[in-house]
Nucleic acid binder design. Structure first.
Lengths: 342, 342
DNA sequence: TATATTTGCGCAAAAGTTTGCGCAAATAAC
DNA sequence: GTTATTTGCGCAAACTTTTGCGCAAATATA
């Protein structure tokens, strides 16, 4: 027998294991346990410096006080910030984070989800990969609530919190149009993701509205520095070099800036930029980059709140009538000097 | 009975639970189980699409195939990169990461370690907080191996992998001295941490060697943007403004750059900078920042290797003669344009 | 044919917690 | 002095897996 178990306390205090369990889980009242017994148990427990065996508890209760967190990559500062906030918020509520990294790989993403479920996480917060919500919907129906952050699926039976990316795309493009730009290239990220799709849609619609549909250019395929660098390079070397870039993430922007520097061009003069995301370092660049900032902190906090509600109230399931929360938070603009007037 | 358990397989295949367990854990050989039985079991298992209940297994075996990862903050890109690599390396080896954030709070750090132990993690990788190794040594002795990354303790009974921060401090300072600077201020980070202490030592020794001990200036107290900004501001506004800054982390540098911009000074002309860490965005600044880069990838990978070895071979414990690995990897220099000649 | 050995597998305990059921004893009611 | 009610708590099952011990049956040896 372990020194630190209900059994040990039971032996010391001379009551049964069951009684100890009930006392320590605050059920002394409804189990009508006498004050004297309660005190004996507490005394023994604190003498042994007892803390419950979480594994046994999880096994028994089918829950673990753990939240699974699944991101495409922690090394992207945008996701790292989400992680940071989610971790803090969950800890505040007594939950521990089990974190995984899907490396933008849908197979791995699904495997990770299954691993989390096997570990009986009480809920999952994820930035998903791929276009297929079915798997996640199944998990959410049969096992534990899931809240999507940033990326989501259309008309899916899952809660999500995201930025109004379409609006973001519109605002960015309009900013460039208003400054007189007519030739604006868009370097996109992960093309299977809704945020990317919506940002691009905003861009395209805005261009169309300005009568520039035949001057649209959308390239790229990943939210990474490499992609930003590669695509920007190609664009800058092209015959009819655009006068402005709309880069769809902080990483893409970073890569683009590298390409621009190599080419010897001046940002805000030779080439203008509006970037998605709010990266501190981009703010301190000279010139500072104009950004469409996402309300990351709110997004992460709200996601945790929604998840907690779903955990506390699995009633939603009872009649197959789960209710899902779909939130689209407004982006904001961080003005910089990277947009030049033509 | 759950549909997905040893018991279910046992019932279908008509053997006992024990036999199923032995077959599925590859112990059919040493338990001398007949080929026919083995096949029946496999058939039933694959029919049910069995996968073991990890919690029950962990409870029984006192191990979990999980590694605890404990960082001061995920939002610092330096730590995020460590996390990213550790996660990937562990997954490669079939381990899952349980990640926590101590927010630079020693109490919370200890609580988090205890939580990890309670969950029976097989090992821990940590960037610790505080000056006190005793607690960690105890955990490592009694529960599971611990490998420290980046931060460590002198003469402690714990393995660690870190950068040769003293060398880094020396190289940085010498770089500035060689360019003719005589008045060099150092903005430091978390003062309880060894890396910080060693970087500062390198700086001080180097200054002393150049006969400049009375012109040393070390300020600051956290690896954060705010601290970098605040201290740089104060330094730049001081009477005898130094001609160069040695900033001890990427975050501090970012803050310092903000202060410099606000003050209207030109980096590399009015004020020179050498920074610790290797942040991509600092490389794309104009002018690009000269940096003392830490071998983050190697550090993280080696840390995982050491941990895996310790897990595989708990023999070290048997005679109280554990052996600890202490590694100090060499930093490298990333040349930029932020150091001006005087 | 009787004893020894090997082969094949099951029983039950163990890990630590939670909880439905129900047993006794004390108190209340008649 | 019975019967009913309440109080206080224990028993044992359940969650799933692992493993030491040992029982039968089959085969080999004497």
């Amino acid at each position: 027998m372990k020194e630190d178990s209900l059994a040990a306390i039971a032996k010391i205090s001379g009551v049964s294991i069951a009684t100890v369990s009930r006392v320590l889980s605050g059920k002394a009242g409804q189990a009508r346990i006498s004050k004297a017994t309660v005190e004996k148990v507490y005394a023994a427990a604190s003498k042994l410096d007892y803390s419950p065996g979480i594994l046994a508890r999880s096994l028994r209760n089918d829950k673990s006080k753990m939240i699974g967190l699944l991101l495409p990559t922690v090394s992207n500062p945008y996701f790292a910030e989400i992680a940071s906030i989610v971790i803090a918020e969950c800890r505040l509520r007594g939950y521990t984070i089990m974190m995984m990294d899907s490396a933008e790989d849908e197979k791995l993403f699904h495997k990770s989800i299954s691993a989390l479920v096997k570990r009986k996480v009480d809920g999952i917060i994820a930035v998903p990969c791929g276009r297929q919500p079915l798997f996640l919907e199944g998990i959410s129906r049969d096992y534990c609530p899931i809240v999507l952050v940033d990326r989501y699926y259309k008309d899916c039976n899952l809660s999500y919190v995201t930025t109004d990316n379409y609006q973001g795309g519109v605002i960015a493009t309009r900013k460039l149009l208003d400054a007189g730009h007519r030739s604006i290239a868009c370097i996109q990220g992960e093309i299977t993701s809704m945020p990317n799709f919506n940002r691009v849609s905003g861009y395209l619609d805005c261009m169309k509205e300005a009568g520039l549909e035949d001057r649209c250019l959308v390239t790229g395929d990943a939210f990474s520095i490499e992609n930003g660098y590669r695509e920007a390079r190609a664009i800058l070397n092209s015959k009819n070099r655009p006068t402005a870039l709309f880069t769809l993430s902080n990483t893409i922007t970073l890569g683009a800036i590298q390409a621009i520097k190599e080419k010897g061009l001046k940002i805000g003069k030779d080439i203008s930029i509006v970037s998605f995301d709010n990266n501190v370092s981009l703010r301190y660049f000279t010139p500072s980059i104009t950004m469409i900032s996402q309300p990351v902190e709110d997004m992460a906090k709200v996601a945790v709140q929604i998840l907690m509600k779903a955990i506390a109230n699995p009633a939603g399931n009872s009649k197959g009538s789960q209710s899902f929360t779909h939130l689209r938070l407004a982006p904001s603009v961080i003005e910089g000097q990277s947009v030049g007037r033509l």
